[in-house]
């Protein structure tokens, strides 16, 4: 199976371990990720706030490129990117005037719905299937029996009417992934609460409080590691963990934060280096060592 791959700006450097592990895992699952040629930034939420139309234009350009390069599915790993791609496609399908307006900005027009943009979790659920992932998992991996929580963040499931992926209140697919690896998913009330990463450089206290509450809640339900699928969430939950915990409580604790692809890779017996586990801010060494002995 060959699918288009839209990395987004942060995947090449800021979240290189996510990029690397996704490639390794998809290779094992027999999915070929072909990077979209000549892609540009999706604009995230920032460009919309400055210029509404230009923001839609630059997203539509990526979709038009995917159409030109004959991809049926366009995968984004960053939820903000996947949200922008899905939302623009959705708008163009449902509003013809809007579609004409956006197409007038582009050199090669985009035919709405000719590409199906989606987040990588959706590809895993609907096109690869949990059964196929189960086949590749090797028993006796270091995560077996560990307690874990899945953290979705915002754009994997919300806004529900546009993304149409999972129940926006209680999505469960990442819990299934935890189960497949042999770890025990815990019920996590703050699964879809925002970590506030979009305001990271503007309002630090807000982000730290939101993130701290999530981490505190994860600790309370007994999580030994957190599973997520967004590099911005990782930046605040993982990279800012110490400060965030400091802001909401006096206690000290550490929870390793892993990408879902890293966890699947560990389950498939891939070596640590190729999954980029050394690049996580909170070192998962302790978590992985305990199981081996």
């Amino acid at each position: 199976m060959k699918v288009g791959y839209y990395p987004g700006c942060s995947l090449h450097k800021v979240a290189k371990e996510y990029d690397r592990s996704v490639h390794k895992v998809m290779e094992k699952l027999g999915v070929e990720l072909v990077e979209l040629k000549d892609w540009n930034c999706c604009g995230a939420l920032e460009v919309t706030a400055v210029d509404h139309l230009a923001a839609e234009g630059i997203v539509a350009r990526n979709l038009a490129l995917a159409e030109e390069q004959k991809f049926e599915q366009l995968i984004a790993v960053c939820p903000a990117c996947s949200y922008q791609l899905i939302a623009t496609n959705y708008k163009m399908v449902h509003d013809k005037n809007k579609a004409d307006e956006i197409n007038s900005l582009l050199e090669t027009p985009y035919t709405p719905n000719s590409v199906k943009p989606m987040h990588i979790l959706e590809l895993l659920r609907d096109y690869v299937g949990i059964e196929k992932i189960k086949e590749k998992i090797i028993p006796g991996n270091p995560l077996e029996g560990k307690k874990a929580v899945s953290y979705y963040g915002c754009f994997c499931t919300r806004p529900g009417d546009i993304i149409q992926f999972e129940d926006p209140d209680n999505p469960t697919f990442m819990d299934d992934l935890i189960e497949v690896v042999g770890a025990e998913p815990q019920f996590f009330p703050m699964k879809t609460k925002c970590c506030g990463a979009t305001q990271m450089l503007v309002a630090k206290p807000v982000v730290e409080t939101l993130t701290g509450n999530i981490l505190l809640n994860a600790r309370d339900v007994g999580a030994e590691f957190i599973l997520l699928a967004c590099q911005m969430c990782a930046l605040s939950l993982d990279g800012q963990q110490k400060q965030a915990i400091k802001r909401v409580t006096d206690e000290k604790f550490e929870i390793p934060v892993l990408y879902f692809s890293q966890v699947l890779g560990l389950g498939m017996g891939l070596d640590y280096k190729s999954l980029g586990l050394g690049s996580n801010y909170v070192s998962p060494k302790k978590l992985l060592k305990g199981a081996k002995t």
Binding site: C9, N40, E46, V50, D51
Partner: peptide, 22 residues
Amino acid sequence: KHKHSFDKRFSESIWLWGRTWE
């Protein structure tokens, strides 16, 4: 002012490089 400035720098970065350069 801060948030708007951030949004603006972000979109200028895309204008300059086609992608954001953090």
